[in-house]
Amino acid sequence: MSECFRWISVMFVPFMCAGILGYGLWKRAPVYEYFTEGVREGLEAAVTMLPFLMAIFLGLETLTASGAMELLELLAKPLLRFFGIPEQLAPLILLRPVSGSGSLAVLEETLEAVGPDSFVGRAACILSGSCETVFYVIGMYFSVTSVKKIRHCLPIGLLCYAIGVLGAVWVCRIL
């Protein structure tokens, strides 16, 4: 099962690649030229992204490194208890919106502490899938646009985050 999943995931890139190039061959198109032309555009986009990414990396790092998260954790605990969410999940829930790699490290620690097949462990895994790095995604996606007003993106991102957390805990309780 695990092997099978890995294969599907690994196959995605090479198969897409072969499909596109194969189609090009069939159409007798100058594939090589088109490819290099596209690469140039891609690299230009990467460079334009950089200043905005720098800003978002800096902002998120400042917030996490300052210890503001620990205070938030303290404040969030009664709220989590109210919704029946195990306390051990608090660090993960709070870090996930701002840092993908950071929250993975926390997930690893949580799994080691409580065991991957326990209720909390399973909930933590599902949560990592169903909840997203909201701030990070918004910052990065809009970095390539000229948008200044992001309208309802942030409220929806956060609201769905809450739904994801509750869903993860409830589904583990039922199944």
């Binding site: 897409m16 690649c17 596109i20 190039l21 189609y23 090009g24 159409k27 198109a29 594939v31 088109y34 490819f35 290099t36 032309e37 596209g38 690469v39 555009e41 891609g42 690299l43 986009a45 990467a46």
Partner: peptide
């Protein structure tokens, strides 16, 4: 980004 951008350019110009 460069790689996918290149491939997508191929896909687009060939009509895929």
């Amino acid at each position: 980004m460069g790689m996918w951008s290149g491939l997508m350019n191929v896909a687009q110009k060939t009509g895929l």
